[in-house]
Amino acid sequence: MSVEVQLVQGPLAPLAAHDDDQALGTDGQAGAFVLFEGIVRSTEADQPISGLQYQAYEPMAQDELHKLAHKALKDHDLISVRVWHSKGMVAVGKVSFRLLITSAHRKQALAAMDGFIDALKCDVPIWKTAVYERSCN
């Protein structure tokens, strides 16, 4: 069982092939690999935006993400939980959040995914502010 948490300045880079390999491991125990990526939408409250500005209260944000990941591991009998979250500016269309879970069976990973994201939105001190596009008028 393993946990990895990273707060990253700016948008998240695309998932690399070695991240897939690392998540799956080499012991053949993983039967499910579930990946969620949060992408910045182009509007907020029906207004066009250029991106989202994320502010994290560190190191508490790191600690809370670690706690959630370890709880998910235990509650759902997972193999690994890896989470990345952006801080700072993330432009529209870019990835600001990634959660990668592996487990022996799909139901464990899918249930853990939903629960983790719900808890994140309650307990992890990260805030986002919309950056609106400048009007040309």
Binding site: Y54, A56, L120, I126
Partner: peptide, 10 residues
């Protein structure tokens, strides 16, 4: 001390 409210990560 920090006031933690209206978090909106993810």
């Amino acid at each position: 001390l920090a006031l933690i409210a209206m978090v909106s990560g993810g």
